[in-house]
Structures are given as C-alpha cells and as structure tokens.
Design a protein around this nucleic acid. Structure first.
Length: 417
DNA sequence: AAACATGATTAACG
DNA sequence: CGTTAATCATGTTT
C-alpha cells in the first residue's frame, strides 16, 4: 500500500521531489539504473518543453523501458481494481430493452417497411370505403417515417462521433503510453467507458424518440381526438341490424365481426356503436321512432311478401292474438313506442294514412301493428314508464331465441351477408 | 356561434 | 368481460 501511494504520486508527476523510490529491485546495479530512470521521469515535468521532449525520447529508447513500463502498468492495474470494481455494472439494461422494444414495435427502429403502407392501402381499398381512414393513416405514417429518419440520422451521427472520439482517445492514450504507464487493457477499458457514455446518450435519443412517437400517436391515432363519423353505408348497416333486432339488440361476437367487416370498422367500434345506440334509443325512444320505422321498412321491403301475408293474417283473422312471431314483436314495439305516441302516430298517419294495402312498405306494417299495440298497452304501462328499465331486457329475452321471430328476422338481415 | 349528433372513453356494476 | 350511464371531444347542422 505504501508503494502504491508513492507510485501514484510519481505518476501524477506533481510532488515527490526528492524521495527515493522503493521499487522491487533484486540487484543493486539495476536498482541504480532504475533509480536513475525514475529520477529522470520525475524531473521531466520541471523541465522546459523542448528539454522534456528530448528526455522523453531518450527514455523511450532506454533498454529498461519495457520492463519498467509493464511493472508500472501492473501496479496501476492493481490500484485501479479496488476503485473500479464497484462501478462496473450496467443498470441500463431493462430500461434500454424496453425502449428498444417499443421502438421496434412502433416500426421506428425496425426494418424499413415501405411495402407495409402499400399493403394497408390495398386492404382498405379492397374494402371499398375507408379512404378517409387511409388518408389519416398515411399522414400518420409520413410523420412516423419523419421521426424514424431523424432517429436514424441522429443515431448514425452518434455512432460516428463515438467512433471518432474512440479512435481519438485511443491514439491519445497510445501516444501517452510512451510516457505514462497505460496498458492495452486500460485502453480497452477506456474505450468501453466511452461506448457506455455514448450509448447512454443514444438511450436518451431513443427515449425522446419514443416520446415523439407517443405524442404523434395520441395526436393522430387517438380516435377520440380526431373522431370520424362512420360512412353512410356503415350506419345504414348498423341501424338495419339494430332495428331488425330491436327486441334484443345485442349482437353476438360473430355478428359483431360480420358487421365490422361489412362496415369497414373494427369490432370494438361496432360494440361502441351498439352501446351508444342502445342507451340513446332507450333514453329517448320517441326521437328514434321515425328512424325505427324507416329501417323497419327498409328491412321489410326485402321480405315484403312474407310480411305482407302475415300482417294480413294478424289483422283480418284475429285482432287479439294472431299467434305469429309478429305479435310478440309488436308487443315489444308498443312498449318501446309507448312514450311519444302522439308525435309518432301523427307521423305514421301522415306518412301512410290512406293506403293501408300492403305495397311492401314496411312502415305500414310497423305502423299498423304498433298502433294497435300501443293503444292497448298505453294504459297498462302508463306514459311514465319511459326509460329506466325493461326496454328490452325483461320483456325481450324470452322471445329472442326461441320464438319464430328469429326465423322471420333472419330473412332480411340476420344471415344475409 | 350555438345546438345538436355521434364516436370514444370511463367508472361502476353484475 | 360485456354493459350501462355519464361524459368528453369532435363533427355536423342550424
């Protein structure tokens, strides 16, 4: 330990003016020699530049130089180990991994995906609608590739700077190793340190890139911010399903997928739509009545013949209970429509009043049956039964699956895809 | 610009 | 987990 202290001071080249160094020296002759060399080394800092340069050269060529050099290196290595051992870890790994994964997932650091855009465009084009959607996406994609480009150029710049700096330091150290005990191992370690520093800088770059991507993502892909209304067709299809399943407007997962495919939207969008639709319909049935009739008409048109026959039956034969699936459906409708019947009725009458034949107009069918129904049950349910509960839940579940309703419904839209 | 419509998000619930 | 109900934030209409 004492030797080390001395040596450190020596190597620092600051003090140690007249101290005799106690290096391990087996023979007296050589000790004299070494002492001489060390003396020269020690005093070199006190000399003028030219003088020192000359002396340096002299020392470099000295026959004992390699031996002394290696000894000094070894000692230095030993002293350094105790200091370094604690700080050699790399705590950056998990974080760096996370960032890397993220960037890879976002397609920033991964392979260039020029074909991906084309594929997506083709897919959306194949669906037919979704042009606006792909515009949005291309905008997003453009920004993303901008970020990626910046990221890559910066990364490359850092890489280059790192290499430059490394070679510079290596040259410097190699040069200095003529006058200082610097082992190749130490140079290597130095290089490692440099690399670590630069990679931490790179991590910062990655982090800020991630942030940028996230911001961009939230700005462009967060549909809440940039909400787009569904296409006319899509709402058409959704409404069709909704009103033709008004008794149980809860599409199954498969049905949702079908609708999603047909509407060029996602399944969760379908779920959202039905959630919103149900709650809003229930909340203000009257407001939707017109729409309901419209879509009921629309679906009825396709099944006009069958419906027409049934309606005639239910009207002519037995006003009370015609025993068809329509009756049940009617009851549901009357429940639904009970609230704003006035408006409703007016609409219906003005819309379809005179001609109640059966020219396919489903609204006719709707209006006829629901009129009867609503008059019946208005007193029962009362005008105040509006929302709250039981719009379709209790009254509906029984008829949803078992009754012939499903059969009739399936004629128009249920299985028609 | 205000009012309304609508898709998405959220907490609470069963 | 899927729903409901309330709410947000935007789109559309008036």
């Amino acid at each position: 330990m004492e030797d080390q202290t001395h040596l450190m001071q020596t190597l620092g080249g600051v003090t140690l003016a007249g101290h005799p160094l106690s290096l391990p020296a087996p023979h007296d002759g050589k000790q004299q020699d070494i002492g001489d060399i060390l003396q020269q080394i020690m005093t070199i800092t006190d000399q003028s530049l030219d003088e020192a340069q000359a002396k340096k050269h002299g020392l470099n060529c000295h026959r004992m130089k390699p031996a002394l050099f290696s000894v000094l290196c070894e000692i230095k290595e030993k002293t350094g180990l105790s200091m370094r051992s604690s700080q050699d870890e790399e705590p950056t790994d998990p974080q760096l991994m996370r960032l890397d994964n993220m960037l890879l997932a976002e397609g920033v650091s991964g392979p260039e995906k020029g074909s991906g855009a084309a594929a997506v465009a083709a897919a959306t084009a194949a669906v037919g609608v979704g042009a606006d959607n792909s515009i949005e996406h291309s905008d997003y994609r453009a920004k993303l590739s901008q970020i990626r480009q910046i990221y890559h150029t910066e990364l490359e710049k850092y890489e280059q700077a790192c290499n430059e700096f490394t070679t510079h330091v290596m040259n410097l150290l190699r040069e200095q190793s003529r006058t200082r005990p610097i082992s190749p191992k130490e140079i290597e370690r130095m290089v490692n340190i440099i690399h670590r520093k630069f990679s931490s800088i790179q991590m910062q770059l990655k982090q800020s890139t991630c942030e940028a991507v996230m911001i961009l993502r939230s700005r462009f892909l967060d549909a809440r911010r940039k909400r787009r209304n569904f296409s006319k067709q899509a709402t058409e299809i959704l409404n069709e399903y909704f009103y033709s399943h008004l008794s149980n407007p809860y599409p199954s997962e498969e049905a949702k997928e079908e609708l999603a495919k047909k509407c060029a939207i996602t399944v969760s969008q379908v779920s959202n739509w039905f959630g919103n639709k149900r709650i809003r319909y229930k909340k203000n049935i009257g407001k939707f009545q017109e729409e309901a009739n419209l879509y009921a008409a629309k679906t009825a048109v396709t099944a006009a013949q069958a419906v027409a026959a049934a309606v005639q039956n239910s009207q002519n034969n037995s006003p009370a209970t015609p025993s068809s699936g329509f009756q049940m459906k009617d009851e549901e409708f009357q429940l639904d429509a009970a609230e704003d019947k006035n408006n409703l009725l007016n609409n219906m009458f003005t819309g379809t009043s005179g001609s109640h034949s059966l020219p396919g107009s489903g609204d006719l069918f709707m209006s006829m049956s629901s009129l009867n129904g609503s008059y019946q049950s208005n007193q029962v349910t009362g005008a105040g039964q509006t929302q709250g509960n039981g719009v379709w839940h209790d009254a509906v579940t029984p008829s949803s699956v078992t009754s012939p309703i499903e059969g009739t419904n399936s004629i128009h839209s249920d299985t028609s895809n």
